[in-house]
Design a protein around this nucleic acid. Structure first.
Lengths: 330, 330
DNA sequence: AATATTTTCGCAAACGTTTGATATTGTTAA
DNA sequence: TTAACAATATCAAACGTTTGCGAAAATATT
């Protein structure tokens, strides 16, 4: 079954292709009568413009590429949902690819994006080394790139991310307010800048405003590591009274240990984390958390993308604010 | 900055466009020497074939469309992950759109897919009325459609879904093996066919193989309802010794109650659910569950798609088998 | 040495659309 | 009546590929 084309419509109506094209897009050059006829026929033959021919002609694909480490991720899929929502409103479609945190996949994905001449790319860096070279080539070819969440240090790029330092500071504040004496603070992969930033901010705040509180800083790269760390630390003589989990992954590990050891929250141990809220609300009592909303981040990223597309360069790093959500765990 | 094209390469090398094209795809007509020269130049000018020109010429977009109710969903994103993985291996990219369970969006998405001449569509019906008309038009235009999870009754389509009845049966089996005397079984929205199927299968099995076990059947449309139901039932004099949760949503509610009431699992109450495994593994001990893997379903759907694309029609309804995953909760 | 065969390459059309330039009308003003 | 002007519609080129067909050059066969 062959697709309906402008040519076909033109033949049927015995008029030229260009007239059909213009009629369909309500061009003022075309009379109302002709427009009516054309639209009617297009409707009945259910004509669908060929996006590829259009892109070839106009050099504008109206497609955004999105690279995330994993689609199956509470944070990223709310980000995607937001970007998708806005894109739809603006006539763009999304091409989503996952890097699985592998540089190889990330490069493959970028190639696909280039070959499809995407109008722009939303990228979350994979944990491995930064391959900014490729991204530079894209921006040079006037394909805007908006980095989100895990962003490069390079200041020539547009970036949006959570206010990571602020998140950590808010958490620290809560811990101090609670009058904690001994704290276990577990951070994520120390190779990631996000971990470094959060840890630095947390540490600075604690040392500034509560120098007498004893804090143990440790890193966990996985849920299992986090559980392990918690168990080991809790086995010590002088137990901590509050635990801080930098990510959902870590929180899950912590909570497994807490359940296994039958520790009472918040009586024996207070818990606070940074999260988008889904995981913390799975438990009883609800875990207190500083909210980082992928959804908000998505909206912001989209705004930046459009700004980039419209005007000139907007080489700034924007952050979305964090807020504390109280649960029963502190 | 203008993109590198075949024409540009041809001009540089003073040979024809077709020779360049053929050299790049290792056509036997072209000499090794020429191929080497072409490849070298293409490399250094980082030539990227224009996917749109190719599609226009070849009438093959190498893109699959995917419609899901929501991307932010544990089940669907594992489905997407699987399809994406396979697609990548086979040189296809994915265009993912969400319907948010709205017919309007679903139709919009299909239009985008048609305009982009996708090679095929993976579709999960939105909860609202079935608009099979549109899907028919696609298959008529030789765009294969593979329905997944929530599938139409119409037998002219290719469908893959979970073995819903079997899941419930396996769970029932476990409950009987455990020697339960009194069971609380909580099912999802009774309006959904999936709930009906699972409940019918579960009930039939229990009545057949363990008629003396007392089962209380209740429905919960949300996490909160599930928690409420659990609390109410647990307050009764003769307590149940096992609880069955049909979905993750329900399991979360149940577990909240269990944690709040400080009930020991599995000593005081055994827990079993149907899930993809993420939620059950959040707790200690891990909750036993019958696995419904979006991942497996994705793999199966992809196979069906390729079969559809290659050979003729494969108008069958395939299901992916469920398997029991033991935790410490039974 | 002349013909036949293979190897290597170029020509040109086609895919479906958009758009600047141009042609054909009908209408108005002089 | 004719020049001037809208209004309407058409021509043709271009976007970047692929590919059947034919041409030239190189090699092999008599």
């Amino acid at each position: 079954m062959t697709n309906t084309t402008l040519k076909l419509l033109a033949q049927q109506l015995q008029i030229s292709i260009s007239t059909v094209s213009r009629a369909l897009k309500d061009h003022p050059d075309i009379s109302a009568a002709t427009k009516a006829k054309v639209n009617a026929l297009a409707q009945s033959m259910d004509y669908e413009p060929n996006a590829y021919a259009i892109q070839l002609r106009t050099q504008n694909s109206k497609i955004f590429g999105v690279i995330v480490p994993a689609i199956s991720n509470l944070f990223y899929d709310s980000f995607i949902a937001a970007v998708e929502e806005e894109s739809r409103k603006n006539g763009y479609a999304l091409m989503i690819l996952q890097s699985s945190n592998k540089l190889e996949n990330e490069l493959d994905n970028l190639k696909i994006f280039r070959q499809n001449r995407v109008s722009g790319v939303f990228a979350c860096l994979s944990a491995q080394a930064e391959n900014l070279e490729t991204y530079h080539r894209m921006t040079e070819k006037e394909i805007p790139v908006v980095f989100f969440d895990i962003v490069p240090k390079d200041n020539r790029f547009t970036k949006v991310r959570m206010a990571d330092e602020r998140c950590a500071t808010i958490a620290a504040e809560c811990i101090i307010k609670r009058n904690s004496k001994k704290v276990l603070a577990i951070f994520g992969d120390p190779g990631l800048s996000i971990s470094q930033k959060r840890k630095a901010a947390f540490q600075a705040f604690m040392e500034n405003y509560a120098p007498k509180v004893h804090v143990t800083y440790l890193d966990a790269k996985s849920t299992d590591e986090a559980e392990e760390i918690f168990r080991k630390q809790y086995a010590k003589v002088q137990k901590f009274d509050t635990v801080f989990a930098m990510t959902d992954e870590i929180l899950i590990g912590v909570m497994k240990a807490i359940q296994a050891l039958e520790i009472k929250v918040p009586k024996q141990v207070g818990v606070i984390s940074i999260s988008n809220g889904f995981i913390p609300n799975l438990y009883h009592p609800h875990i207190c958390y500083v909210e980082t909303s992928g959804y908000e981040l998505g909206k912001l990223a989209f705004i930046q993308m459009m700004a980039n597309l419209k005007g000139g360069k907007t080489l700034t790093e924007l952050t979305v604010e964090a807020k504390y959500v109280a649960g029963g765990s502190m």
